[in-house]
């Protein structure tokens, strides 16, 4: 298939990926095109500052406060901005709610789109060919590989993030946790539950 990029610069670089990135970083730094300290700062941000706790904070609040939940579902972006949960790969967030009738699960079959400001960098399984190729065709079988079995009368809805809309699942809170306070709820909400690959309290 003809493409517009004819020159494959990457074939010039060492085949070992670690050396490849090192060579590229060196070339860019020597030409003044990157600042290695800025790279460290980016890594620190995603390693230590932005992660699933952001998403869990929102979900816990939505469970505890019906008014907040209503606002969140209808006026998502201004609310997330107030929390500071905005930025790269989270410019347009849509929250989808699990109910006894519908279970939502999120994927990006074309690449690995994911709501970074709410969940951080996606886990390896989310980026794997196996998940991306299979979850649209056999979501129930995939869910069973995560230890989740849904009743047959619960419809599965798979959200394939093909554009710049990013999806976050609002999981169901089992009755047994209804007296938990905010901090306890945040502990309970796993990253995978906010992708739709786990249920609350269903530790695999």
């Amino acid at each position: 298939m003809p493409h517009d990029i004819e020159k494959h610069g990457h074939s010039l670089l060492p085949s070992d990926p670690e050396l490849k990135v090192k060579a590229l970083e060196t070339a860019l730094a020597k030409n003044g095109l990157i600042d290695p300290a800025a790279l460290d700062e980016i890594i620190d941000t995603y390693q230590n500052k932005i992660g699933p706790k952001n998403g869990a904070t929102i979900i816990a609040k939505a469970w505890l406060d019906q008014n907040f939940k209503n606002d969140l579902m209808t006026n998502t972006m201004p609310i997330l901005e107030k929390f500071g949960f905005f930025g790269r790969q989270g410019e347009h967030i849509q929250i989808v709610e699990n109910t006894p009738e519908v279970h939502n699960i999120v994927v990006c079959t074309l690449c690995s789109c994911y709501p970074w400001p709410l969940l951080g960098i996606p886990p390896t399984w989310y980026k794997s060919d196996a998940y991306r190729s299979r979850v649209v065709r056999e979501p129930r079988k995939c869910l069973s590989e995560f230890g989740v079995t849904l009743p047959n009368n619960t419809k599965v809805r798979v959200w394939d993030s093909t554009a710049e809309i990013r999806y976050l699942v609002l999981p169901m809170l089992p009755k047994k946790y209804k007296d938990f306070d905010k901090e306890q709820l945040i502990e309970l909400i796993s990253r995978d539950a906010m992708i739709g690959a786990a249920l609350i309290g269903n530790v695999t």
Partner: peptide, 10 residues
């Protein structure tokens, strides 16, 4: 991590 960071930085 370096790949992600160099991609974002450039």
């Amino acid at each position: 991590a370096r790949v992600l960071a160099v991609t974002l930085a450039t």
